[in-house]
């Protein structure tokens, strides 16, 4: 049996911030490993540091101590542009507030990550557009391709965000409370869609949530408390 590829690894990862009351430790020397194709849920109360951990794992922030490796690259060796380049095409994101660009249509929002990583030739552009259209179709919104986010419901906006996340064929997806702004019914449908697309693409998933029921759908569950990570049953 082959050893699964490690897509994301954290070793003795720590994050401190300076606040009005002095130094505040958010993460305390935690270790973590995400294998290729694996779905891991990070569960914890509000303010426990889940989103901070997600930001460090995705290379959006710099650790105070320890090391993160993403897709085999140590992030400490890369500057901000290097981390951005590493993310391009390999990492997808789904956010609680959808984070769609309000001045772009649904199709253009899905197209954005493809444009940023496409080649300089016209063929790359055409290929990107057809992939974006395909991704929108997969989330059932091809009829709304020309609509702006303000014209879509919350659920539809999150579907566009999911299409955007999966369109480049990422190796790992980071989702931060993807149903936080949705009602229960819509949230459930979104999660079904998310896991279905993940299964098709084989991407790893790091899901930050406070919903333990949602966490149960992942392969592993980790609990965040006092800056430490613990495996949960």
């Amino acid at each position: 049996m082959s050893t699964p590829e490690i897509l994301c690894r954290a070793e003795r990862l720590a994050k401190h911030v300076n606040g009005p009351g002095g130094r505040l430790t958010i993460l305390r020397a935690l270790d973590l490993r995400i294998d290729a194709g694996e779905a891991v849920a990070i569960v914890g109360a509000s303010g426990s540091g889940k989103s901070t951990l997600l930001g460090l794992l995705a290379g959006l922030d710099e650790a105070s101590d320890g090391e993160v490796e993403l897709c085999g690259e140590p992030l400490s060796a890369l500057d901000e542009d290097g981390r951005a380049a590493l993310r391009g095409g390999r990492v997808g994101f789904v956010f609680q507030s959808f984070q769609l660009l309000p001045t772009l249509t649904a199709l253009e929002n899905v197209l954005l990550p493809l444009e940023l990583t496409a080649g300089d030739n016209g063929a790359g552009a055409r290929d990107a557009k057809s992939r974006a259209q395909e991704a929108l179709e997969r989330v059932g919104l091809s009829a709304r391709a020309g609509h702006y986010p303000r014209q879509l419901s919350g659920g539809e906006q999150q579907r566009v965000a999911i299409a955007r996340a999966f369109a480049p064929g990422p190796r790992i997806l980071f989702a931060d409370e993807p149903t936080g702004n949705l009602d229960q019914g819509t949230g459930a449908r979104i999660i079904d869609l998310l896991f279905a697309l993940r299964a098709d693409s084989g991407a790893a998933l790091v899901l930050v949530t406070h919903d333990s029921a949602l966490a149960q759908r992942c392969d592993r569950r980790l609990g965040m408390q006092d800056g430490h990570l613990e495996a949960l049953l």
């Binding site: 901000e80 542009d81 951005a84 380049a85 993310r87 095409g89 660009l101 954005l112 990550p113 940023l116």
Partner: peptide, 10 residues
């Protein structure tokens, strides 16, 4: 911020 997340360097 989104574009930087999605891989656009500064």
């Amino acid at each position: 911020a989104i574009m930087r997340c999605l891989g656009a360097p500064r």
